[in-house]
């Protein structure tokens, strides 16, 4: 039983590390800042969350489980907030989106941050 749990911990850790690596590859390979953010916010969160889960399984005490759960919850709460902030900042800098981008329903409207900030 203990061996089984140890195996589970190892598999979770490797799985989390693989997702971390995929997030990094995405940040290097994807075409523009906004698409890179998809890789970092999703794959990165899942990877880090899986690794924290394996920490929670590894240590016996309830206090470690509570702290790991708090860390995962914190990660899930902060990722969308920072992603939102980064997305707005990227758009506000007016850096051109990737040429393969389809429609841009924000550009030029009264809500366009590039325009709103200029006023």
């Amino acid at each position: 039983m203990a061996d089984l749990i140890q195996a589970l911990i190892g598999i979770l850790a490797v799985g989390g590390a693989v997702f971390c690596l995929i997030a990094a590859i995405g940040v290097v390979r994807l075409p523009d800042a906004l698409t890179r953010m998809h890789a970092s916010s999703k794959a990165g969160t899942l990877g880090c969350g899986l690794i924290l889960l394996s920490v929670a399984l590894f240590f016996p005490g309830i206090d470690v489980v509570a702290r790991a759960a708090a860390a995962i919850l914190f990660l899930l709460l902060t990722t969308p907030v920072s992603a939102h902030m980064i997305g707005r900042a990227i758009y506000a800098t007016g850096a051109p989106l990737w040429k393969g981008t389809g429609v841009d329903e924000l550009k030029g409207t009264q809500d366009d941050p590039a325009r709103r900030l200029g006023q």
Binding site: V27, G47, C48
Partner: peptide
């Protein structure tokens, strides 16, 4: 974006 991911990776 990269610095944000760097922080998450360091935590991992």
């Amino acid at each position: 974006v990269a610095i944000d991911l760097f922080g998450v990776l360091a935590v991992a």
